[in-house]
């Protein structure tokens, strides 16, 4: 019978990992339903290169989209609140992602999530 080693002598820092299984994927599902182009992003970074807000602060729509897709929604609301909705990203996106609606839908989903958070969060 296989015996499990409890401690190899090092402790694994779980915080470093994207714990995909434990993450919250509801936001991604809700957003994708409202704005299906969420799935079209190829992470080329054109949006974040042209982004007005990213000239002044750390903000990348490309990363926001990935974080939503991976279910990494902690602290994300603060991220999306930096957007000025100017629409430059939408004008340069090679995949025709509706970036402005994505921001709005992500914000809405996260707000609803924070209001009724406990119901949606897995233990």
């Amino acid at each position: 019978m296989e015996k499990k080693v409890k401690n190899f002598g090092y402790s694994v820092t779980r915080d470093r990992q994207i714990d995909f299984d434990a993450n919250n994927h509801d936001v991604g599902k809700i957003v994708a339903l409202a704005e299906p182009t969420l799935h079209l992003c190829i992470s080329c970074g054109t949006c974040s290169a042209t982004c007005t807000a990213s000239q002044f602060t750390e903000f990348s729509l490309r990363q926001v989209i990935l974080l939503v897709r991976r279910g990494e929604t902690k602290g994300l609301l603060k991220e999306v609140s930096k957007c000025m909705l100017c629409g430059k990203c939408q004008l340069v996106c090679p995949r025709n992602v509706s970036t402005r609606n994505l921001i709005i839908q992500i914000s809405r989903a996260l707000c609803n999530h924070e209001v009724s958070g406990s119901a949606m969060l897995k233990p």
Partner: peptide, 10 residues
Amino acid sequence: NKSIAMDFSY
């Protein structure tokens, strides 16, 4: 969109 609050303090 009343729940959406933008933050431009940066």
